[in-house]
Design a protein around this nucleic acid. Structure first.
Ligand code: FES
Ligand code: FES
Lengths: 135, 135
DNA sequence: ATAAATGATACCAATATGGTGTCTTTTGTC
DNA sequence: GACAAAAGACACCATATTGGTATCATTTAT
Protein backbone atom coordinates (compact mmCIF):
# COMPACT_ATOMS: atom_id res chain seq x y z
CA UNK A 1 0.00 0.00 0.00
CA UNK A 2 1.46 3.29 -0.98
CA UNK A 3 0.11 6.81 -0.95
CA UNK A 4 2.45 8.37 -3.49
CA UNK A 5 2.90 6.80 -6.90
CA UNK A 6 6.05 7.14 -8.94
CA UNK A 7 4.88 10.04 -11.07
CA UNK A 8 3.80 12.05 -8.03
CA UNK A 9 7.17 11.45 -6.45
CA UNK A 10 9.03 12.43 -9.63
CA UNK A 11 6.87 15.52 -9.99
CA UNK A 12 7.67 16.70 -6.48
CA UNK A 13 11.40 16.31 -6.85
CA UNK A 14 11.39 17.84 -10.29
CA UNK A 15 9.50 20.87 -9.04
CA UNK A 16 12.10 21.16 -6.29
CA UNK A 17 14.84 21.37 -8.89
CA UNK A 18 12.98 23.88 -10.99
CA UNK A 19 12.23 25.97 -7.92
CA UNK A 20 15.92 25.96 -6.99
CA UNK A 21 16.73 27.52 -10.35
CA UNK A 22 14.59 30.56 -9.50
CA UNK A 23 13.81 32.61 -12.63
CA UNK A 24 16.05 30.61 -14.94
CA UNK A 25 14.41 28.05 -17.15
CA UNK A 26 15.39 24.41 -16.82
CA UNK A 27 15.20 21.91 -19.64
CA UNK A 28 14.25 18.25 -19.49
CA UNK A 29 17.80 17.41 -20.50
CA UNK A 30 19.13 19.31 -17.48
CA UNK A 31 16.70 17.57 -15.18
CA UNK A 32 17.36 13.99 -16.21
CA UNK A 33 21.08 14.57 -15.60
CA UNK A 34 20.41 15.71 -12.06
CA UNK A 35 17.58 13.41 -11.19
CA UNK A 36 18.26 10.25 -13.16
CA UNK A 37 14.72 9.75 -14.41
CA UNK A 38 13.54 8.29 -17.72
CA UNK A 39 13.33 11.15 -20.19
CA UNK A 40 10.03 10.37 -21.93
CA UNK A 41 8.31 9.76 -18.64
CA UNK A 42 9.59 13.00 -17.17
CA UNK A 43 8.50 14.89 -20.26
CA UNK A 44 4.99 13.56 -19.80
CA UNK A 45 4.98 14.63 -16.17
CA UNK A 46 6.22 18.12 -16.97
CA UNK A 47 3.59 18.53 -19.64
CA UNK A 48 0.94 17.65 -17.13
CA UNK A 49 2.28 20.20 -14.67
CA UNK A 50 2.42 22.74 -17.46
CA UNK A 51 -1.19 22.05 -18.46
CA UNK A 52 -2.22 22.43 -14.85
CA UNK A 53 -0.58 25.88 -14.86
CA UNK A 54 2.01 25.07 -12.25
CA UNK A 55 4.82 25.53 -14.75
CA UNK A 56 5.48 28.12 -17.42
CA UNK A 57 7.00 26.55 -20.51
CA UNK A 58 9.15 28.06 -23.24
CA UNK A 59 9.65 26.35 -26.55
CA UNK A 60 12.64 26.42 -28.81
CA UNK A 61 16.36 26.85 -28.24
CA UNK A 62 17.09 28.20 -24.79
CA UNK A 63 13.63 27.24 -23.66
CA UNK A 64 12.56 25.05 -20.79
CA UNK A 65 10.38 25.30 -17.71
CA UNK A 66 10.06 27.58 -14.74
CA UNK A 67 7.60 27.78 -11.88
CA UNK A 68 4.33 29.57 -12.56
CA UNK A 69 3.45 29.78 -8.86
CA UNK A 70 5.44 30.22 -5.67
CA UNK A 71 7.03 27.07 -4.24
CA UNK A 72 5.17 27.48 -0.95
CA UNK A 73 1.90 27.32 -2.85
CA UNK A 74 2.49 23.90 -4.39
CA UNK A 75 1.36 21.23 -1.95
CA UNK A 76 1.86 17.48 -1.85
CA UNK A 77 -1.89 17.22 -1.75
CA UNK A 78 -2.26 18.95 -5.10
CA UNK A 79 0.39 16.68 -6.61
CA UNK A 80 -1.54 13.61 -5.46
CA UNK A 81 -4.77 14.93 -6.91
CA UNK A 82 -3.14 15.76 -10.24
CA UNK A 83 -1.41 12.42 -10.74
CA UNK A 84 -3.57 10.04 -8.76
CA UNK A 85 -7.05 11.48 -9.04
CA UNK A 86 -9.45 12.72 -6.36
CA UNK A 87 -8.43 12.04 -2.80
CA UNK A 88 -10.75 9.64 -1.02
CA UNK A 89 -9.56 7.34 1.73
CA UNK A 90 -12.67 5.20 1.89
CA UNK A 91 -14.99 4.64 -1.02
CA UNK A 92 -17.21 2.29 0.96
CA UNK A 93 -19.90 1.34 -1.48
CA UNK A 94 -20.95 -2.04 -2.74
CA UNK A 95 -22.53 -2.85 -6.03
CA UNK A 96 -22.80 0.85 -6.79
CA UNK A 97 -24.75 1.70 -3.64
CA UNK A 98 -23.45 3.36 -0.51
CA UNK A 99 -23.48 1.24 2.63
CA UNK A 100 -26.90 1.53 4.32
CA UNK A 101 -25.30 2.26 7.69
CA UNK A 102 -23.21 5.08 6.31
CA UNK A 103 -25.10 7.78 8.20
CA UNK A 104 -24.72 6.36 11.69
CA UNK A 105 -21.61 4.20 11.48
CA UNK A 106 -18.98 4.98 14.06
CA UNK A 107 -16.28 3.47 11.89
CA UNK A 108 -17.09 5.63 8.91
CA UNK A 109 -17.23 8.66 11.14
CA UNK A 110 -13.76 7.96 12.50
CA UNK A 111 -12.33 7.31 9.06
CA UNK A 112 -13.75 10.57 7.80
CA UNK A 113 -12.11 12.49 10.60
CA UNK A 114 -8.78 10.85 9.85
CA UNK A 115 -9.17 11.77 6.21
CA UNK A 116 -9.84 15.38 7.06
CA UNK A 117 -6.80 15.64 9.27
CA UNK A 118 -4.61 13.91 6.72
CA UNK A 119 -5.69 16.29 3.99
CA UNK A 120 -4.87 19.28 6.14
CA UNK A 121 -1.41 17.91 6.78
CA UNK A 122 -0.76 17.04 3.15
CA UNK A 123 -1.76 20.56 2.24
CA UNK A 124 0.72 21.95 4.73
CA UNK A 125 3.69 20.34 2.98
CA UNK A 126 4.97 22.24 -0.04
CA UNK A 127 7.83 22.39 -2.50
CA UNK A 128 9.30 25.01 -0.17
CA UNK A 129 10.05 22.21 2.31
CA UNK A 130 12.15 20.53 -0.34
CA UNK A 131 14.18 23.69 -0.84
CA UNK A 132 14.82 24.00 2.86
CA UNK A 133 16.02 20.42 2.93
CA UNK A 134 18.55 20.95 0.18
CA UNK A 135 20.33 23.83 1.81
CA UNK B 1 -6.47 7.75 -4.96
CA UNK B 2 -7.92 5.50 -2.34
CA UNK B 3 -6.55 4.05 0.86
CA UNK B 4 -8.90 1.08 1.25
CA UNK B 5 -9.40 -1.37 -1.58
CA UNK B 6 -12.56 -3.37 -2.06
CA UNK B 7 -11.34 -6.50 -0.30
CA UNK B 8 -10.22 -4.57 2.76
CA UNK B 9 -13.58 -2.89 2.91
CA UNK B 10 -15.46 -6.18 2.53
CA UNK B 11 -13.27 -7.79 5.17
CA UNK B 12 -14.03 -5.07 7.70
CA UNK B 13 -17.77 -5.25 7.23
CA UNK B 14 -17.76 -9.02 7.22
CA UNK B 15 -15.83 -9.12 10.47
CA UNK B 16 -18.41 -6.74 11.88
CA UNK B 17 -21.17 -9.20 11.03
CA UNK B 18 -19.29 -12.14 12.45
CA UNK B 19 -18.50 -10.21 15.60
CA UNK B 20 -22.18 -9.36 16.01
CA UNK B 21 -22.99 -13.09 16.07
CA UNK B 22 -20.81 -13.52 19.15
CA UNK B 23 -20.00 -17.20 19.71
CA UNK B 24 -22.29 -18.52 16.99
CA UNK B 25 -20.65 -19.49 13.74
CA UNK B 26 -21.67 -17.71 10.57
CA UNK B 27 -21.55 -19.27 7.12
CA UNK B 28 -20.62 -17.63 3.85
CA UNK B 29 -24.19 -18.20 2.70
CA UNK B 30 -25.49 -16.24 5.69
CA UNK B 31 -23.06 -13.42 5.02
CA UNK B 32 -23.78 -12.90 1.35
CA UNK B 33 -27.47 -12.58 2.15
CA UNK B 34 -26.80 -9.84 4.64
CA UNK B 35 -23.98 -8.06 2.87
CA UNK B 36 -24.71 -8.55 -0.81
CA UNK B 37 -21.17 -9.46 -1.83
CA UNK B 38 -20.02 -11.91 -4.54
CA UNK B 39 -19.79 -15.33 -2.94
CA UNK B 40 -16.50 -16.58 -4.39
CA UNK B 41 -14.79 -13.33 -3.62
CA UNK B 42 -16.02 -13.33 -0.04
CA UNK B 43 -14.91 -16.91 0.39
CA UNK B 44 -11.41 -15.93 -0.68
CA UNK B 45 -11.41 -13.06 1.78
CA UNK B 46 -12.61 -15.24 4.65
CA UNK B 47 -9.99 -17.85 3.88
CA UNK B 48 -7.34 -15.17 4.08
CA UNK B 49 -8.63 -13.98 7.45
CA UNK B 50 -8.74 -17.56 8.61
CA UNK B 51 -5.15 -18.19 7.52
CA UNK B 52 -4.10 -15.05 9.34
CA UNK B 53 -5.69 -16.49 12.50
CA UNK B 54 -8.31 -13.78 12.87
CA UNK B 55 -11.11 -16.24 12.30
CA UNK B 56 -11.75 -19.75 13.57
CA UNK B 57 -13.30 -21.95 10.89
CA UNK B 58 -15.41 -25.07 11.20
CA UNK B 59 -15.96 -27.41 8.30
CA UNK B 60 -18.96 -29.51 7.51
CA UNK B 61 -22.66 -29.17 8.17
CA UNK B 62 -23.39 -26.57 10.80
CA UNK B 63 -19.90 -25.14 10.36
CA UNK B 64 -18.88 -21.60 9.49
CA UNK B 65 -16.68 -18.89 10.95
CA UNK B 66 -16.34 -17.10 14.23
CA UNK B 67 -13.86 -14.56 15.56
CA UNK B 68 -10.57 -15.89 16.85
CA UNK B 69 -9.68 -12.62 18.57
CA UNK B 70 -11.65 -9.89 20.30
CA UNK B 71 -13.28 -7.28 18.04
CA UNK B 72 -11.40 -4.46 19.75
CA UNK B 73 -8.12 -6.11 18.78
CA UNK B 74 -8.77 -6.13 15.04
CA UNK B 75 -7.65 -2.80 13.59
CA UNK B 76 -8.18 -1.17 10.22
CA UNK B 77 -4.44 -0.98 10.00
CA UNK B 78 -4.08 -4.74 10.19
CA UNK B 79 -6.76 -5.16 7.51
CA UNK B 80 -4.84 -2.86 5.18
CA UNK B 81 -1.61 -4.74 5.73
CA UNK B 82 -3.27 -8.10 5.14
CA UNK B 83 -5.02 -7.18 1.89
CA UNK B 84 -2.88 -4.38 0.52
CA UNK B 85 0.60 -5.25 1.66
CA UNK B 86 3.04 -3.34 3.86
CA UNK B 87 2.01 0.18 4.75
CA UNK B 88 4.36 2.77 3.30
CA UNK B 89 3.18 6.24 2.36
CA UNK B 90 6.26 7.23 0.43
CA UNK B 91 8.55 4.79 -1.29
CA UNK B 92 10.79 7.53 -2.59
CA UNK B 93 13.42 5.67 -4.46
CA UNK B 94 14.45 5.86 -8.07
CA UNK B 95 15.97 3.16 -10.19
CA UNK B 96 16.23 0.98 -7.14
CA UNK B 97 18.24 3.48 -5.10
CA UNK B 98 16.99 5.70 -2.30
CA UNK B 99 17.07 9.43 -2.94
CA UNK B 100 20.50 10.81 -1.97
CA UNK B 101 18.96 13.59 0.09
CA UNK B 102 16.87 11.21 2.12
CA UNK B 103 18.82 11.83 5.33
CA UNK B 104 18.44 15.58 5.48
CA UNK B 105 15.33 16.28 3.43
CA UNK B 106 12.73 18.34 5.24
CA UNK B 107 9.99 17.01 3.00
CA UNK B 108 10.79 13.39 3.72
CA UNK B 109 10.97 14.18 7.41
CA UNK B 110 7.51 15.74 7.36
CA UNK B 111 6.03 12.91 5.35
CA UNK B 112 7.46 10.39 7.77
CA UNK B 113 5.86 12.16 10.69
CA UNK B 114 2.51 12.18 8.93
CA UNK B 115 2.86 8.48 8.24
CA UNK B 116 3.57 7.75 11.89
CA UNK B 117 0.56 9.69 13.06
CA UNK B 118 -1.67 8.10 10.46
CA UNK B 119 -0.62 4.61 11.47
CA UNK B 120 -1.38 5.35 15.11
CA UNK B 121 -4.85 6.50 14.15
CA UNK B 122 -5.55 3.56 11.86
CA UNK B 123 -4.52 1.28 14.68
CA UNK B 124 -6.97 2.99 16.99
CA UNK B 125 -9.96 2.06 14.84
CA UNK B 126 -11.24 -1.46 15.34
CA UNK B 127 -14.13 -3.77 14.52
CA UNK B 128 -15.54 -2.71 17.86
CA UNK B 129 -16.32 0.69 16.34
CA UNK B 130 -18.46 -1.03 13.75
CA UNK B 131 -20.47 -2.79 16.43
CA UNK B 132 -21.08 0.46 18.27
CA UNK B 133 -22.31 2.01 15.03
CA UNK B 134 -24.83 -0.75 14.41
CA UNK B 135 -26.57 -0.47 17.76
C1' DA C 1 18.00 26.31 -42.68
C1' DT C 2 18.76 24.06 -38.63
C1' DA C 3 18.97 22.59 -34.13
C1' DA C 4 17.00 22.83 -29.65
C1' DA C 5 13.43 22.81 -27.16
C1' DT C 6 8.22 21.69 -25.75
C1' DG C 7 3.11 19.87 -27.20
C1' DA C 8 0.13 16.27 -28.34
C1' DT C 9 -0.78 11.79 -28.49
C1' DA C 10 -0.61 6.95 -29.25
C1' DC C 11 1.17 2.89 -27.80
C1' DC C 12 2.90 -0.79 -24.70
C1' DA C 13 4.45 -4.12 -20.84
C1' DA C 14 3.94 -5.27 -16.14
C1' DT C 15 1.32 -5.31 -12.09
C1' DA C 16 -2.69 -4.82 -9.16
C1' DT C 17 -7.53 -5.22 -8.61
C1' DG C 18 -11.76 -7.51 -8.48
C1' DG C 19 -13.43 -11.22 -9.32
C1' DT C 20 -14.93 -16.66 -10.84
C1' DG C 21 -14.72 -21.67 -10.99
C1' DT C 22 -13.31 -26.31 -9.78
C1' DC C 23 -11.96 -29.83 -7.20
C1' DT C 24 -10.73 -31.59 -2.43
C1' DT C 25 -11.51 -32.32 2.44
C1' DT C 26 -14.04 -32.40 6.66
C1' DT C 27 -18.05 -33.33 9.31
C1' DG C 28 -22.86 -33.74 10.93
C1' DT C 29 -27.24 -36.25 9.86
C1' DC C 30 -30.17 -39.80 8.01
C1' DG D 1 -22.35 -45.84 4.66
C1' DA D 2 -24.41 -42.25 1.67
C1' DC D 3 -25.23 -37.67 1.36
C1' DA D 4 -25.24 -32.89 1.92
C1' DA D 5 -23.30 -28.84 3.88
C1' DA D 6 -19.82 -26.54 4.87
C1' DA D 7 -14.64 -24.69 4.37
C1' DG D 8 -9.69 -25.31 1.99
C1' DA D 9 -6.72 -24.96 -1.84
C1' DC D 10 -5.77 -23.01 -5.91
C1' DA D 11 -5.95 -21.91 -10.73
C1' DC D 12 -7.81 -18.86 -13.82
C1' DC D 13 -9.48 -14.50 -15.83
C1' DA D 14 -11.04 -9.61 -17.26
C1' DT D 15 -10.20 -4.95 -16.44
C1' DA D 16 -7.81 -0.95 -14.67
C1' DT D 17 -3.77 1.28 -13.18
C1' DT D 18 1.03 2.10 -13.27
C1' DG D 19 5.22 3.04 -15.31
C1' DG D 20 7.20 3.92 -19.38
C1' DT D 21 8.36 4.57 -24.64
C1' DA D 22 8.09 6.49 -29.14
C1' DT D 23 6.59 9.48 -32.89
C1' DC D 24 5.40 13.42 -35.09
C1' DA D 25 4.20 18.37 -34.88
C1' DT D 26 5.20 23.05 -33.45
C1' DT D 27 7.82 26.93 -31.82
C1' DT D 28 11.91 29.74 -31.58
C1' DA D 29 16.91 31.37 -31.15
C1' DT D 30 20.88 31.41 -33.92
S1 FES E 1 -20.13 -0.36 7.65
FE1 FES E 1 -20.83 0.91 6.07
S2 FES E 1 -20.61 2.89 6.86
FE2 FES E 1 -19.84 1.62 8.42
S1 FES F 1 13.78 14.72 -2.29
FE1 FES F 1 14.44 12.74 -1.79
S2 FES F 1 14.27 12.66 0.35
FE2 FES F 1 13.50 14.60 -0.16
Amino acid sequence: MKLLTRDTDYAVRTLGCIAAAKENTVTVTDLIKKLNMPKSFLRKILQMLSNKKLLKSFKGTGGGFSLAVKPEEITIFSMIEIFQGPFQLMEHVFRGKACPEIKTCSLKEKMDRIEEELIIKLKSITIMDLLKGQK
